[in-house]
């Protein structure tokens, strides 16, 4: 286990492996997006309540799932990084932050676009949108902290502590926002959040969710490769790669 972890955690090995895997991941997410979009936009029937506007769900819900998933993944990297001091965790967590922030932004923006025909306004202080907004602040805070500290090692370890504090707080924030929303429940009942979902809509939703996950993984590897090259540009293995023309 330990030899495996160290081999996998070594930048050179990771760089080569990620480079080999990534083209396959790219092909996979393109195929998944194509199937998901076809099933979601063409095959799935029109919803009898919301008409065709519900089709935004196929991008809104996967981005919302990803926004939370990526934050938890970053917190896991933070814990591993603080306990075992694996260099790779810093690279992976920092590469994840802009991706997670992008998904959070997409969840907010598509939710707002969906809200316009459903609620009549672009923005409603609905529990889910509000939680998502706070999550965006948490991502931006982590990125601001990384940008403010000149020393890479200090920045990452401070960021890791912030991520762990954040991940402990997220359930509390989530609970408090839910509670706040029920307290101030507006009079109009929203049409969002249907109690059950038909399989013809669930299948494209799940395919899109997997497509978003694979997309994240592929972009994570790609960003991590760039960061590794930048950090290790003076080491022997990188220079050897460059001289042999394999870069």
């Amino acid at each position: 286990m330990w030899t495996w972890a160290h081999k996998f955690g070594s930048p050179g090995y990771f760089y080569a492996l990620a480079g080999k895997v990534n083209p396959w991941l790219t092909a996979l997410y393109i195929a998944l997006f194509a199937t998901g979009l076809y099933l979601g936009l063409v095959v799935a029937p029109t919803d009898y309540q919301q008409g065709d506007s519900y089709r935004i769900i196929f991008v809104h819900v996967p981005s919302a799932w990803m926004s939370m998933f990526v934050y938890v993944v970053m917190a896991v990297f933070a814990a591993i990084g603080l306990i075992w001091r694996l260099k790779l965790t810093a690279v992976l967590a920092k590469a994840s932050a802009p991706l997670g922030a992008s998904f959070t932004f997409l969840a907010l923006a598509t939710g707002s676009i969906w809200g316009k025909p459903m609620w009549g306004t672009w923005w409603v202080w609905d529990a889910r949108l509000t939680s998502e907004l706070i999550l965006l602040f948490l991502y931006l805070g982590f990125m601001a902290l990384q940008a403010a500290m000149p020393d890479r090692q200090t920045a990452w370890r401070a960021g890791a502590i912030l991520l762990l504090v954040g991940v402990v707080n997220i359930p509390i924030i989530h609970f408090s926002v839910d509670w706040w929303y029920t307290l101030h429940q507006p009079a109009t009942i929203t049409k969002l959040g249907a109690p059950s979902i038909h399989p013809s809509m669930l299948v494209p939703l799940l395919i899109m969710a997997v497509a978003f996950k694979v997309f994240y993984l592929s972009l994570l590897l790609s960003r991590a490769r760039a960061e590794i090259l930048h950090r290790e540009r003076r080491t022997r293995w990188v220079q050897e790669l460059a001289r042999s023309g394999q870069l």
């Binding site: 935004i56 992008s102 997409l106 676009i113 969906w114 316009k116």
Partner: peptide, 23 residues
């Protein structure tokens, strides 16, 4: 899109834009 074309396509267009920007 049954009258919702503007909303649906702007949501999907925005997603395409953001994901592509990341790539």
């Amino acid at each position: 899109m049954g009258g919702y074309g503007g909303y649906v396509w702007s949501a999907y267009g925005l997603c395409l834009l953001v994901l592509l920007a990341n790539v």
